[in-house]
Design a protein around this nucleic acid. Structure first.
Lengths: 150, 150
DNA sequence: TTTAAATCAATTGTGCACAATTAAATTTTG
DNA sequence: CAAAATTTAATTGTGCACAATTGATTTAAA
């Protein structure tokens, strides 16, 4: 029974609040990330490297849903800051292996309290946080599984 | 009892899936938006204009959580495509009024089936969609209300 | 095994986002 | 009223995102 253009109203979109919310939260990160001289995307790369130490650009892209067009210049910048090193794989010269440096690992100490600081920025209760987490990964999953044959 | 760096793991972040999901959904829009020659951000502007016909850059920015640095060049581009017109307010010369044109209104017809096409891209059940919607707007609200005294 | 297809990172070009600054117009204050 | 503060859009500069292409390398097929 909805009027013809009801579905085109902003308030009936699900992607818009997702997009707006994502950007607003990243803005909240900024003052904390400024202290350790990282952008949000660089922070994501460091989080992966802190866990994995070394992986290829391809693997990093799979982790973060980013392609080489985004990662190549980002990683070069981070290499010049001394956070990571880049070298071709000996097993497969097509692949480039990104490895965290000692300085990169040390940055983890200075980042350790960021998640806690960020948590206090929101009024999200544990149930809602869990629901949000589950739904978002379900959505992500349905997009990645639709690419399996590409 | 979590290890020291547990909170820095990608899998324990809530912003990351939000950020990734937002971009993945916008990618799903692309083929549909290409047909009517709009980017996702331009589509958001048009959705506001289809409902409101005319409003200032400031009001548009409040609707979309975007500032003039993003909107000014975007709106100039859309003006050159004939979708909207830009003129200063007579009541207040600081404000610029953005108005949808006839061609802009006509585009609504061609966009009308996009929401339906997009809905079929996801496996989101109605309860989850409603929960996601509620939680995201609650989050957005908590960021905007923290700016009240700026 | 030579050729063809696939994979991977890099490059190119376009389009946002956004912080910070500027400049014009308006409102508020003293 | 006149000066100061505020508001608004535009500008400038930086940093992603991403589609499309390129080029080198590897794998698969004929």
């Amino acid at each position: 029974m909805s009027p013809k253009y009801e579905n085109l109203k902003i308030k009936n979109q699900i992607c818009f609040p997702l997009y707006a919310c994502s950007r607003e939260i990243i803005k909240q990160y900024k003052p904390f990330l400024d202290e350790i001289d990282l952008t949000y995307t660089q922070y994501l790369v460091m989080m992966v490297l802190w866990e994995r130490q070394a992986l290829t650009v391809k693997e990093l892209g799979n982790c973060l849903y980013l392609d080489s067009g985004t990662l190549t210049p980002l990683l070069k910048k981070m290499e010049s800051k001394g956070l990571l090193s880049r070298k071709r794989s000996e097993k497969d010269e097509r692949s480039l292996i990104v490895s965290v440096t000692e300085a990169g690992m040390q940055l983890r100490e200075r980042a350790a309290d960021i998640p806690e600081k960020m948590a206090s920025c929101t009024n999200l209760d544990p149930q809602d946080a869990a629901a949000l987490y589950r739904i978002l990964y379900q959505l992500l999953d349905c997009f990645t599984s639709s690419e399996e044959n590409e």
